[in-house]
């Protein structure tokens, strides 16, 4: 069960919003890079986010670059899951590879600041603030196994190979 507050973002949040190229020199210094997460979309986000909080976005979240640093710093500041109407392919795969759940659902029903409770196994998001209940799309089995091991690197350490 994941619990936290919703931080709402709009459509088309790119990896440049999350970790801009101008900060490429900080990519080997993750604590420093994390201080700028989502800076170009919402400058106050990093000062307000707490462990467990949730990013709730519109469509095509994480479009653009393959930089895994984007989900990495989102996870590093304590975000426990990303909810979106849709998500870009590489970002989706990268987030799961880092053990960060990405859940696809109709995020219009969630407001900024709402308290959410997520049951990953049941596939349900409960909005405790407005009482609504959303179901999210099933994560493909192969990705779920990677997520359950905490990411691709722990998964490969354990199994030594892919198991479809």
């Amino acid at each position: 069960m994941l619990c936290g507050r919703a931080f709402k973002f709009g459509d088309g949040i790119s990896t440049d919003h999350i970790t801009p190229g101008r900060l490429a020199h900080l990519r080997s210094n993750l604590p420093e890079l994390a201080k700028h997460v989502l800076e170009d979309a919402e400058p106050t986000f990093v000062s307000r986010v707490r462990a467990g909080d949730l990013i709730v976005a519109g469509s095509n979240f994480g479009l653009g670059s393959s930089r895994e640093h984007a989900p990495l710093v989102i996870k590093k500041v304590g975000v426990s899951a990303v909810l979106a109407k849709s998500v870009a392919r590489i970002f989706f795969r990268n987030a799961i590879n880092l053990g960060l759940p990405v859940l696809l659902c109709d995020t219009d029903k969630i407001n900024d600041g709402d308290e959410l409770e997520i049951d990953l196994a049941a596939g349900v998001v409960k909005d405790k603030t407005n009482g609504s209940r959303l179901t999210f799309k099933k994560i493909p089995e192969v990705m779920l196994r990677i997520l359950n091991e905490g990411g691709l690197i722990p998964y490969i350490k354990k199994y030594g190979d892919f198991r479809l």
Binding site: G64, S66, E68, P71, R93, N94, N97, L152, I153, F162
Partner: peptide, 30 residues
């Protein structure tokens, strides 16, 4: 390739796709 524009090589008839560092690290090894 650990770069989203890896798709460029599709011009030559290659199934070329961008992935993140973890996937590419595993492809390095496996």
């Amino acid at each position: 390739g650990a770069d989203s524009h890896t798709v460029t090589a599709g011009a030559l008839g290659a199934f070329a796709t961008g992935m993140g560092s973890s996937d590419v690290a595993v492809a390095f090894g496996l």
